[in-house]
Simulated assay, not measured.
Amino acid sequence: MKSVNPNGGLVYSTDAGRMCPDCRQPIAQCACRKAVAPPTDGVVRVFFETKGRGGKGVTVVRGLGLADPELTVLGKKLKAACGVGGTAKEGVVELQGDHRDRVMALLQTLGFRNVKKAGG
């Protein structure tokens, strides 16, 4: 089944699911949205969260203002420096465990000037 937008263009297909209106690719393979950095206020905030994770603590870094390719590279550097697992997606880097101080120091050495500990 295919659904077509009245202004032209495919919006949904049972073959691939949702389609990007700009590049007309499936959302999972869309290249045009991944290349754009999310907006930021210039402050990198480093949180420690346990909410919604079954009591497991996670260090969360928000406000980097990087597009997905650069965010993935930074996420790998942070995970390697802390020796933990984690993920980098949608403008946020998550690291398993409480590594706020180490992450803040590393981000400052990488050139992020306005890094703050947030959330308690």
Rank of each mutant, 00 (worst) to 15 (best):
V60Q: 08
V58C: 08
Q29A: 10
R45S: 03
G55H: 09
V58W: 09
N7L: 13
A31E: 15
Q29F: 04
R18L: 15
E70P: 05
E49S: 11
D15N: 12
N7E: 14
F47Q: 08
D22M: 11
G8E: 09
Q29G: 02
D15K: 13
P39K: 04
N7F: 12
G57Y: 05
V44P: 01
A28D: 13
T14I: 12
D22K: 13
G42I: 07
G9Y: 08
L64I: 02
L71T: 00
A28K: 12
V11T: 15
P6K: 11
R33V: 09
S13H: 06
M19K: 02
T40N: 05
V44H: 00
L71C: 00
G57R: 03
T14S: 12
V36Y: 01
N7G: 12
R33Q: 09
I27D: 10
S13K: 03
Q25F: 05
L64T: 01
I27Y: 09
P38T: 04
P26M: 04
C30Y: 00
T59M: 13
Q25P: 00
C32Q: 02
E49H: 10
R18K: 13
P6W: 08
A28G: 10
V44E: 01
I27V: 14
V11F: 13
N5C: 12
G54H: 09
R18T: 12
K56L: 14
G55V: 08
G17C: 05
A67Q: 03
T50Y: 09
V60L: 08
P26N: 02
C30M: 02
